[in-house]
Design a protein around this nucleic acid. Structure first.
Lengths: 183, 183
DNA sequence: CGCACCATGTAATGCGTTACATGATTTT
DNA sequence: AAAATCATGTAACGCATTACATGGTGCG
């Protein structure tokens, strides 16, 4: 599905693999992410399928870069995917919750350390979505005219990230209290 | 990490691969899941590592089954893993949010259909965690004595699932309103 | 008679991570 | 002088999904 994330970004403007990675990191990390190496591999596959086209751009000040552009076939494939109804829920894997599930026999203090550490991490993440991400959205929306609707949706996804982290922090605080009182 | 999920379940009592799958489905699906085929493969690997041991049990009424038991080495490996601090957040992949992020140019009605479908799915899921899962936890806790602490933690993880789905439903409702009014 | 459930596995394929490999420029 | 950033890729490995393969029992 990384395919579609890349097509999505390229539907706004041509970009290199490196830049795609940066865009992803600053906007979709909390619901979609990828490593650079995988992005390069996937771009190659997309090109073989004819969904994108690339040309090598020579740069003097920086290393040459390969610029990818979405094709018409790519655009329609993206639209087709966006319109495809999702009839099931995205499966989740949350290591920390799995650990907690089996932690009844763990030492009380070890468990508390674990929970507090995660609480702090999720607090930081929440602050990030609250304070940093809005600027990235603003910047991206200001690049071109006519992205008003896009910006509304981007903001909605950001909000999900913030709310999710807030929920997580609250839940972890409850877990900490539970262990402190009952273990 | 499926390894540790299996060790976790086996730390309560010996079980077959088939039963492990059922236990997982009824208790950890919302934060950890696996296919049967993968469970069988992983159990074999665990046995090669000496973390579990198995013996074939002959049954008359049903097909023979291979019963797995955790070894002492397996127990200590599980404890070691549980105590290992998690210093990073579990990465998430949410297809529907990724789609929404790129959906500004999608037909209004297609987008609304997509969002309403997901809202319904998450509502169902929330009801499941609220109404069905508590009974599974009760049943599991009642199997043996001395699982009081375990049951408290299981309930905490169930609560996370319910709260998460509630958040998701609320967020999707907001998205639907947004699209209805501004698109 | 057909379907669901019990029960276990292998093989092919796909997707993702980590490590390896290179090298220039810019900032601290 | 060292570290970060820009920039691209390959190879090995690991984990997960899907499809294939088999076969008995119980219920409606």
């Amino acid at each position: 599905m990384l395919k579609y994330a890349l097509l999505g970004f390229l539907s706004y403007q041509p970009m290199s693999g490196y830049e795609l990675k940066q865009r992803m990191d600053s906007s979709t990390t909390h619901f979609w992410h990828a490593k650079l190496s995988q992005i390069y591999v996937t771009l190659k596959a997309l090109e073989e399928e004819g969904l994108v086209e690339s040309k090598l751009e020579e740069q003097t000040e920086r290393p040459d870069k390969r610029n990818y552009q979405i094709t018409e076939k790519g655009q329609s494939e993206l639209s087709r995917w966006l319109a495809l109804p999702d009839v099931s829920l995205s499966p989740k894997k949350e290591t920390i919750i799995l650990k907690l599930f089996f932690s009844a026999r763990l030492e009380r203090e070890t468990l508390l350390t674990q929970l507090r550490l995660q609480r702090d991490l999720h607090r930081q993440q929440q602050a990030y979505y609250r304070d940093v991400t809005p600027r990235a959205i603003q910047a991206a929306g200001a690049e071109f005219a006519g992205l008003e609707k896009d910006a509304l949706l981007w903001e909605a996804t950001r909000k999900f990230g913030e709310d999710y982290e807030a929920l997580y922090v609250r839940w972890l605080e409850d877990c900490i209290q539970l262990v402190e009182k009952q273990f």
